[in-house]
Design a protein around this nucleic acid. Structure first.
Lengths: 229, 229
DNA sequence: CAGTGGTCTAGACCACTGA
DNA sequence: CAGTGGTCTAGACCACTGT
């Protein structure tokens, strides 16, 4: 009969959705709620904390808890490895390396990653296929100063993405989504028309303050990134 | 000197990032860790729970806790109201209604929102400007059966987005990102070229199982959605 | 200053699941 | 069956911050 934190969370949520506690209004404090639900304050606290994490309510000491004016809801996207993304759809995954070269970092990349003057980078062009159809084009740059082991990898069997997640366990990431156009080369890779709109993800990765890699992932025309909340 | 859950979380995290606990390895159980850090088990539990929420570790009863093989990291995007998005950049916000009409729902919309046969919808075309420059085009459809009050709103001063978040406190949302091309009309709105790539967000909203609204938000060419994690 | 949330504790019981 | 995480409790002290 005692309420669990999930019960409490669900009940508060329903009070908000049904308008019983309108946006901007003050919610009873934890002690009162604990008595209402017949549970310990920690239980209420956990429920409220999760609701606050979800962006539904706003909590301030002494001021109390309020329903957010504009529910600043957050969309969460899983950023999976391409292989997993494709195999999850039940399609067969195939990887192919199109080009591999060690060059000195171009200016735009140095700016983007905050690289110091001189520096070699490993530049890779890869394709990922789902059931034989082109799925994603990967334009990858790896900072050799940060990851000298990359020099000895040929990336013929395994894509750089999988190698990287296995090599660097954790890192700081900046990710950005945008829309672009298929140029001639991309059109060839995707067997699509030049000028087709393509969805693009760019990701910069640092590890312990040092730039590790930059990648531009271009999806085949028509790709969508979808989520619910 | 006692460790807080943040201390514990940070320490575990560093052990993972530094490779001391490699991916796939088993982490000591909560009781042992509590002793190590000189704190209560609940404290360790909270640290571990948050790490699991963040997708860094995987926990199973009896089996214990492991470092995830592929850190299934999640990107979280705030989905703000356009006005807030623009004003946060320090730009002046201006809204303008381009068209307003009540029509019977087109087939594609009925399919998209799971609408029943007959049904009128309010169709709005709006523009949002930042410092006078076109910023976002809003193609909005509102289900009048679900929101009869919409019929009496003229949406001349206030955009439908702000009206909706004030009217419906909370809802189920499906959101999807994609890349598109500017057609002739959009090119006029944005003063850009036909065929320019545009970033598009589509959002369907339900409330208590009933379809409320569908919107296609198109950003001016060059727009990026960026986040860190 | 006083009210509210933030966190910790020591202990307990339960739920799941691998061996 | 036994080990591990999941959750709850009753109480405590603290940190912040509005009045």
């Amino acid at each position: 009969m005692k309420a669990t934190y999930k019960d409490v969370k669900a009940d508060i949520l329903s009070k908000i959705t049904k308008g019983e506690w309108p946006t901007g209004s003050l919610i009873p404090n934890e002690v009162d709620l604990a008595e209402t639900y017949g549970c310990a304050r920690s239980t209420v606290n956990r429920a409220m904390r999760e609701l606050a994490d979800d962006g539904l309510i706003e909590r301030r000491r002494k001021a109390g808890t309020r329903v957010r004016m504009t529910p600043i809801r957050q969309a969460r996207f899983d950023i999976p490895v391409v292989r997993a993304e494709i195999e999850e759809k039940g399609a067969a995954y195939r990887y192919s390396l199109a080009d591999r070269a060690i060059v000195s970092a171009p200016d735009w990349l140095r700016a983007r990653l905050n690289l110091s003057e001189q520096g070699e980078v490993l530049h890779l062009l890869c394709m990922h296929y789902a059931d034989g159809d082109p799925y994603q084009h990967e334009d990858r740059w790896i900072n050799i100063a940060a990851l000298p082991q990359a020099r000895d990898e040929d990336f013929v069997q395994t894509g750089p993405n999988e190698w990287l997640v296995a090599t660097i366990p954790f890192s700081d990431v900046e990710i950005s989504f945008s829309a672009g156009l298929a140029d001639e080369k991309l059109a060839e890779y995707f067997a699509c028309a030049v000028g087709d709109p393509v969805f693009t993800i760019e990701r910069s990765t640092w590890w312990e303050g040092q730039a590790v890699t930059f990648v531009r992932l271009t999806y085949r025309p028509g790709h969508r990134l979808t989520t619910r909340y």
